[in-house]
């Protein structure tokens, strides 16, 4: 990994080329479990974003102090701390949204994506780079959640962000829990297909 990364590069990597949900296929549990509305996606996205950014920055700040032998425990402690904080904050100020997300906010502590960024990026790079990388990853997660949430909310309940867009409920199926698997699976396939088509076109031009 080179040291010189532009901010846009760091951001776009998290959102597009290394999107945690569609590309890296990490942190799938909430993507399936509570992606029934855009709001849920946004809320959990914010929580993850917060935890990712704060943890990355924290680790990046203290990277010289952390003994390599206790690297993993330090990550866990850092993440757990920030998750606790966001958990408490959400519970206090957004009780409604918090109740909808249930156990998943607390489970951010076990998200592979966060630990992975700490291990692969934050513990080696500058604080500012780590920050932007974390922002990219957090946004990438949020974008993924929002896309899935928008799809399911629109087709499941005919609404977007709670506003009635279609005026009727097309297919209850999409807001059912089991539909999460189908939607994520179909979306992943869709992105794969786009990629293939794009590459073919590129190949045809070249």
């Amino acid at each position: 990994m080179t040291n010189d990364k532009s901010i846009s590069e760091l951001l776009s990597r998290g959102i597009l080329s290394e999107n945690p949900i569609f590309k890296l296929a990490l942190s799938m549990c909430p993507a399936v479990g509570i992606s029934t509305t855009v709001m849920n996606g946004v809320m959990l996205g914010i929580a993850v974003f917060f935890v990712q950014v704060f943890s990355s920055v924290t680790i990046s700040l203290f990277k010289n102090v952390i003994h390599p032998r206790i690297r993993i425990p330090s990550y866990t402690l850092t993440i757990a701390t920030w998750v606790t904080v966001i958990d408490l904050v959400l519970a206090a100020y957004m009780p409604g949204a918090y109740a909808k997300m249930g156990i998943f906010v607390k489970l951010i502590v076990a998200f592979a994506i966060i630990t992975m960024r700490l291990e692969m990026f934050a513990c080696k790079e500058k604080v500012s780079d780590s920050f932007w990388d974390a922002v990219g990853m957090g946004l990438g997660f949020m974008v993924g959640m929002v896309v899935i949430g928008a799809f399911r909310e629109l087709f499941g309940s005919g609404m977007i962000l709670g506003y009635d867009v279609l005026g009727y409920k097309p297919l209850l199926f999409f807001i059912l829990p089991s539909a999460g698997f189908f939607v994520v699976g179909l979306m992943m396939a869709f992105f794969n297909w786009i990629e293939v088509v794009y590459k073919q076109k590129k190949g045809a031009k070249a």
Partner: peptide
């Protein structure tokens, strides 16, 4: 170092708890 970081973490969480509770 572990002790210190634990204390730091506890400090962060504790204050968050007090503020939000």
């Amino acid at each position: 170092r572990l002790t210190v970081s634990c204390l730091l973490a506890a400090l962060v969480m504790g204050s968050a708890f007090i503020i939000t509770n």
